[in-house]
Computed example of a mutant assay.
Amino acid sequence: MSRTLIITNDFPPRSGGIESFVHELARRRPEGSVVVYCSSPAGSDDAADPHFDLRQPFPVVRDAARVLLPSPRVAARARSIAALEDCDSVLYGAAAPLGLLAGGLRGRVRRQVALTHGHETGWSALPGASTALRRIGDTTDTVTYLGRYTRRLLSRALSPAAAVRMRRLAPGVDVERFRPGAGGGEIRARHGLGGRPVVVCVSRLVPRKGQDTLIRAWPRVLADVPDAALLVVGDGPYGPRLRSAAAGMESVVFTGPVPRAELPAHHDAGDVFAMPCRTRRGGLDVEGLGMVYLEASATGLPVVAGDSGGAPDAVLEGETGRVVDGSRPGPVARALIGLLRDPDRAAQMGARGREWVARTWSWEHTAERLDGLLGAPGRADA
């Protein structure tokens, strides 16, 4: 049987979008066909789930290092694992920087695929980092991209031959977990929201995600929808500043960190989903895609998305939601008011979003794409 070695820094029990993406890909591979080589989790993550590795349906080899780097030591261990486990393909959980190991594994394995996310687009804009990306593209068989935006930027850093070999591979959405009726009533009761119109934002609290713009827009929303509530779900380094900005607004509720198992219920607690992300640091801090928009759509919510990077790829403008300038509170407020004051239109957008996600963004579809990438080369996506 063909076996794949997944080399990654991003793997549970650490939490995050890339971690979930890589884990879902691994567990959807055929039984006995995957080995994972990854860094050690941070102490708090390990303590939260010390038996995570033992529960996986595939071997997990943990390096002692907290971060794997494309060093001679890591390259030697990767070659050793590939040989011992009889792996004939390699999947890099994130192209930058671990895809730089590909040159040393050529000849040992038949195929090498490097996943890209949002941060590689930042690499593509920096002289030294873009040179590294070019090398990764030239030594792997395929560099993946999330959507049109990331493909456009990444292709500029790759050689023409590597750019032609790029293929689209984006995370999927579990539409059985993210669905209308996933437990939103319990979340509303927990936070005393009752039957109020609720705007929900589920995301890590960092500047790029735009929760501060939501808070700045909120007084304008309340002027038109006085009983509305804003439910800010998640935690992160920007949390104290956001709580300070919302001081005195009783209609803004912060949940703090929530278990991953409760994320569908928190989406379901809203009437509208909003995350007005914006690009920062001259294009180095950018949204790669924005899976939370697709998860919200699967839950039947209309979405208000920022226009950063690939976020618009996760929205059908005017059909499943609105794309706005995430740096300005005015456009955000107008989009939210329009949806909250027209619940029939909002419900139609939510239903259209769920249909679109179920048809186009399923994990089964993603797993089939990966099958093709690890097998024979496929045709380029549009």
Results as ranks from 00 to 15, higher is better:
T4S: 15
T8S: 11
R14T: 06
E19R: 00
S20I: 07
H23E: 01
E24C: 03
R28S: 11
R29P: 04
V34D: 03
P41F: 00
D45S: 15
D49I: 01
D49E: 13
F52K: 02
L54S: 14
A65D: 14
V67P: 00
A75Y: 04
R79P: 08
G93N: 07
A96R: 09
A96I: 02
G104A: 15
Q112R: 12
T116C: 14
T116Q: 11
L126Q: 14
I136L: 10
G137M: 12
T140L: 06
T142D: 00
T144F: 03
G147F: 07
R148H: 12
L154W: 08
P160G: 14
P160E: 09
A161Y: 02
A163H: 08
L169F: 10
R179Q: 13
G181F: 13
G184D: 15
E186L: 13
R196F: 12
V198R: 09
V198S: 10
V199W: 00
V200M: 11
V202S: 02
V202E: 09
S203E: 05
I215T: 09
R216C: 12
W218R: 03
D227T: 14
V232Y: 01
G234F: 02
D235Q: 14
S244G: 13
G256D: 06
P264W: 05
P264H: 12
H266D: 06
H267E: 06
D268I: 09
G270I: 07
G270P: 05
D271T: 02
T279L: 00
R280Y: 10
L289F: 15
V292Q: 07
Y293H: 09
L294K: 08
A298V: 12
A298F: 05
A305E: 03
D307E: 04
S308P: 06
A314L: 06
V324P: 10
V332N: 01
I337E: 12
L340K: 10
P343E: 11
R345M: 10
G350A: 15
R352P: 07
G353H: 06
W356G: 13
R359G: 09
T360Q: 10
S362K: 04
E364C: 11
H365V: 05
E368Y: 00
L374W: 08
A376H: 10
A380T: 15
